[in-house]
């Protein structure tokens, strides 16, 4: 029983930690692009990588202050969004998907390549760029604190606090935008671009604004991740993270303000709980070692998440917050 409680506590920590924030911010960005505007951005992780490396390179390589690094990361994300949007947003939706997925993989390979080593440190990546930020914490960051049965370092707590504030501010921004006429145009573009054009709206500009805004959220997510881990390594930014963020968004409910946030927390909770729980069952001998060894657990937990998503799509296709009537309209 105590073991189970412990597994729950560990999973709870994971659902509140910086990784959950990372996915939440990525998914908020995808929600703006895919949930509201209908844009298929399959390379959200590229924006995150630019955000993370924006800080890392500025601070570690160029010796700039931390906050300038934040601005560099955001600016890089905006530029990437413009570069991706300019040629593709006048075309059919699939072209943006192709361009973004290729860019995400291409940028990661570029950042880890030998020729980029002088700037990005290649596969080893950069570290020691977050001291300015951690130093801002109002409490002692070298001490460990016990919260809800798990132990957090002061630095972890500070990153999580600032991260969740970012998530809340981001959600408020999305909430304010989506109840305004601007959000109405965006949702209409998702439904039918041509109808919106025929009513005198410049669809291209709205799509570009959505792409840039979503990219900025992606960059913020990457920054939280880089600051949370204390290092920026290109291979941390695998494009699988984009699809986990999509999973979180669909889990929580697309086109809902809180969908991506709650979705990421649940995703991280399930991943961690499955991990700890399965290891526990194996060590107790409840699951025989022949059937499942503890080395398989890391993979099996993703299988469980996949199964969970399938069940969700069958029994609750709208996600946790979605409106079933709304989702079912397309089935007509």
């Amino acid at each position: 029983m105590a073991d189970l409680l412990n597994a729950l506590a560990v999973a709870g920590k994971s659902a509140l930690g910086f990784q959950a924030i990372f996915f939440a911010l990525l998914a908020i960005g995808i929600n703006v692009q895919f949930g509201y505007a209908g844009l298929l951005n399959f390379g959200q992780i590229a924006f995150a990588m630019l955000g993370g490396f924006g800080i890392a390179i500025s601070v570690s390589k160029w010796g700039l202050p931390f906050w300038v690094g934040v601005l560099v990361g955001l600016a890089a994300a905006v530029v990437l969004a413009l570069l991706l949007g300019l040629p593709t947003l006048r075309l059919r939706a699939d072209y943006l998907a192709i361009a973004t997925i290729a860019t995400a993989e291409g940028l990661r390979l570029l950042f880890r390549s030998v020729s980029a080593t002088p700037v990005t440190n290649g596969t080893r990546g950069l570290s020691a760029f977050n001291t300015d930020f951690i130093a801002l914490a109002p409490w002692n960051t070298s001490q460990r604190y016990s919260i809800l049965g798990t132990s957090w370092s002061g630095g972890e707590l500070w990153v999580a606090l600032v991260g969740w504030i970012l998530v809340i501010l981001g959600s408020l921004l999305v909430f304010a935008l989506m109840r305004s006429p601007w959000g109405r145009v965006l949702k209409s573009i998702r439904e039918d671009e041509d109808a919106v054009r025929a009513l005198g709206k410049n669809v291209y500009v709205y799509k570009m604004q959505a792409l840039v805004l979503g990219g900025i959220f992606g960059a913020l997510g990457g920054m939280v991740y880089a600051v949370g881990t204390g290092s920026a390594v290109p291979d941390q930014y695998q494009n699988a993270n984009t699809f986990l963020a999509y999973a979180a968004l669909i889990l929580g409910g697309a086109a809902r303000v809180l969908g991506p946030v709650i979705g990421s927390m649940i995703l991280l909770f399930i991943l961690q709980f499955a991990d700890t729980g399965l290891r526990l069952l194996i060590s107790n001998g409840i699951i025989p070692e022949d059937l499942l060894s503890s080395t398989d657990v890391a993979q099996i937990r993703f299988v469980l998440v996949g199964l969970g998503l399938m069940l969700l799509l069958i029994f609750r296709p709208q996600g946790i917050f979605g409106d079933r009537r709304e989702v079912m309209l397309d089935a007509r």
Binding site: S188, E191, A195, R197, A198, G200, L329
Partner: peptide, 23 residues
């Protein structure tokens, strides 16, 4: 472009109706 024409006051409807379903 279509939106500029529409802003001049020339609006159209479509043969296949374009209601924005989820609004």
């Amino acid at each position: 472009s279509p939106h500029q024409v529409a802003r001049l006051g020339v609006v159209r409807t479509f043969q296949l109706t374009k209601a924005l379903s989820r609004l």
